[in-house]
Design a protein around this nucleic acid. Sequence first.
DNA 1: GTGCATTTTTGTCCAGGACAAAATACGTTG
DNA 2: CAACGTATTTTGTCCTGGACAAAAATGCAC
Lengths: 332, 332
Amino acid sequence: MSISRPPMNIGAVERDTGLGKDTLRVWERRYGFPTPARDAHGERLYSAEQVERLRLIKRLIDQGHRPGRLIGAGSEELTLLSAQSATTTAMPTPPGDIAVTTDDTPASAPSTASAAVSPLIDRVLAQVRGHDLPLLRQTLNQAMLRQGLHRFVVETVGPLNVAIGEAWMRGEIEVFEEHLYTEQITTLLRQAMASLPPAASAPRIVLTTVPDELHTLGLLMAQALLALDGASCIPLGTQTPLFDIAMAAKAHQAHIVALSFSASFPTRQVAPLVAQLRDMLPAQTELWIGGGGSERARAVSGVRVLSSLDAALVALDDWRRNAVLESATLAA
Amino acid sequence: MSISRPPMNIGAVERDTGLGKDTLRVWERRYGFPTPARDAHGERLYSAEQVERLRLIKRLIDQGHRPGRLIGAGSEELTLLSAQSATTTAMPTPPGDIAVTTDDTPASAPSTASAAVSPLIDRVLAQVRGHDLPLLRQTLNQAMLRQGLHRFVVETVGPLNVAIGEAWMRGEIEVFEEHLYTEQITTLLRQAMASLPPAASAPRIVLTTVPDELHTLGLLMAQALLALDGASCIPLGTQTPLFDIAMAAKAHQAHIVALSFSASFPTRQVAPLVAQLRDMLPAQTELWIGGGGSERARAVSGVRVLSSLDAALVALDDWRRNAVLESATLAA
DNA sequence: GTGCATTTTTGTCCAGGACAAAATACGTTG
DNA sequence: CAACGTATTTTGTCCTGGACAAAAATGCAC
């Protein structure tokens, strides 16, 4: 790759890494990293290497690590990352225990991430790296047909997402390859949903994300499962302003509003945003929160946190049972 | 709509309106608008009304108006907007002439936006406002089947997008209704593309947007047309970092890279970004730029600006003719 | 009108200070 | 020794007010 990578200014770095300008400047002041060069006017110029490193740090922070420790380290992060992330991503990331266990012999644990969960996953990873789009499409399509939509989403796509993310961290996969993969899965899931029967009038569920949250994949997976179970989904795409989510719920008389927060969504904003939306919604409208960042909404009352994809189906089941009960009560 | 709309802090306003924190503060300093209240700690609190107005101003700026004039005005903007935007959106927005023509009698011109271009469009608008998702789906689906993919995209979806945008400006449509519409079109187009034959090996085209640009609809429309014409499209979704776009083009040996810039993309960044990407790409790889913000890349050399959807097809045609010529030359 | 120079407009960047909420450490008690 | 409440550290975001360059508009000579 003989392409030259020119340095970027602070705005470009913000766009590329998702780290705010204020954050970048305050890190420089506090931790002495990054150390961008300056142009003729005294403006910061970040080298491609530093941006790359910032991206990595961002992902690790999203997994529960803390900036102070990450920035000090040199390259042992690379060890920390691939080893630890595999074991912790499934759970709500037990805070603090991560860096402490560094004292153990790193190679001792049986948690070496790449322990192939399934040959299918390895195959897909290889094909993503190989840039063979038709082949990748075929593989995924076949897997879906063989497993059925439910198992495909839960057992294949979920783990695949994790595997892709980890492979990126290990430097085995490029961002554009990740994008290609995401796009393929998106196409596939939408295609599958299009072929479902036109949706009964079961619970109406509004699905969307708040502004600044643009990860759709998790939401799409949930939508697929819910639609498969006969719920009538009303997708609003991404980045719907809070007030508009509330209006949409009213307009469509939704029984449920389902939001997705990815792990990379600004930690602090999740709880206030969710609480605010909860306030705007009618009391009988349920509010479900899913995705890697959903744990941060745990404290908010009147909200159901879905910690896995299957949890969404359980919630759907609960809702239906509840609905039956209520109508029975009303009838009596 | 009895829902209370609590005031927002500056970060939330940035997310909701797309106006940067710096911009919001500097407007306040210079123009005396907005005038947010302050909380106990001296932090800005924007009222829902001001945010609404900011959203409107943002859209007008995206159409070529200038902040200085917009912010001074009271509600005559509402006139300016609906009347003028209809006539100018199609063209590259002749700069400056807009506000000048205010001297004319406003009602005289035959440019009243809502002059129903097609009954279909009015029907769709009504259905979007009516929140009847199944009906909307059916209408769009039928239109596509009747017109065929090409005509549907060019003659229906394009004008519809404009009509929806204008209806929003006139306050006739809410953001969430716009979202629902967008989502439906997206589903429909993807569905149509899925049913196309698996793509020949004609020119390989990488399609994506740069970071911070998340409007996919235009890109998707282009992709639909190109795929329909037998090009083999490699979609990377949105927000691919520049360097990764270049890497993707190399990895897939793409003949063409196609980017989309919406009108709301920060004006100043378009030209530098495009120039930078042009530098990274191999000389023989063509770079096509489309969308409402593409005119801003006109100055960059070695780039093809597509000012309409049909222009993409012309470009495709040109490329193919050129390819034939070259191979003939090589053979001779 | 057309082309060029000048002025205005406008978005983005900078420094360095401040503060609250979250995360962590600590000390006490059952 | 575990549980729990209280200090302390960490960390992201917001503040003010100044500066500057690129784009847009204006003025001016031809």
